[in-house]
């Protein structure tokens, strides 16, 4: 339980050093410093890819979206005014790309080819399935079955640790909406994962 409480405290509090580091990173990115961009990608690649994969359920599609998110940051960094954290901006771009992809015609055509079936069956990638535990597979499947508006909230909050405020900003939602969507998503997940929580 103690471990659980520590996990619950994970959040997005930024120390003074973090702020200074981020300012330095933003300045370097604005100068077009490729090394800084490389460091930025290496730091966030797993998170961005993770959000995309949790949302889309397809590795190649997730990679495509994650790459596009980084490229957008690289090309639009001069428009970033520092009103939020750089990482929040990155998650905002990623979330919107994912939601747009889920609503797009391209996505629906791909779904016809079996993406949905893979998500529902919990087998996004045969090679990966071998290494995946039963619990991991159940979590992935349960998340994939959520409505996409609830899915993105729970992915950002519980799987990637964004604060309510960051989620509200990334998805352009009211705090109350974030809270209610998160609650409904968790209640659904509680039912689907019941056998692991008893």
């Amino acid at each position: 339980m103690k471990e659980g409480r520590e996990l619950l405290r994970q959040g997005s509090v930024q120390s003074q050093e973090d702020v200074q580091n981020e300012q330095g990173l933003v300045e370097a990115l604005k100068r077009g410093d490729v090394k800084a961009f490389e460091a930025f990608v290496l730091t966030y690649q797993h998170r961005v890819f993770g959000i995309s994969l949790r949302m889309l359920g397809d590795r190649s599609e997730a990679e495509e979206i994650a790459q596009e998110a980084f490229l957008r940051v690289y090309r639009s960094i001069r428009e970033f005014r520092g009103e939020s954290k750089l990482s929040t901006w990155l998650y905002t771009i990623t979330s919107r790309l994912c939601l747009n992809r889920l609503k797009s015609g391209e996505r629906q055509r791909r779904e016809g080819a079996g993406v949905l079936a893979r998500i529902a069956n919990g087998h996004p990638d045969p090679a990966e399935t071998l290494e995946e535990s039963e619990l991991e597979a159940a979590i992935r499947q349960a998340i994939a079955e959520l409505d996409e508006d609830r899915r993105i909230v729970v992915v950002l909050r519980d799987l990637h640790g964004l604060s309510y405020e960051e989620i509200a900003e990334a998805l352009d939602l009211e705090l109350g909406t974030v809270r209610s969507r998160l609650h409904r998503a968790r209640m659904e997940l509680k039912q689907r994962l019941e056998r692991f929580t008893q």
Partner: peptide
């Protein structure tokens, strides 16, 4: 449980 789930690797 959700928070303990491993993060997918790029």
């Amino acid at each position: 449980l959700l928070r303990s789930a491993g993060e997918p690797q790029a």
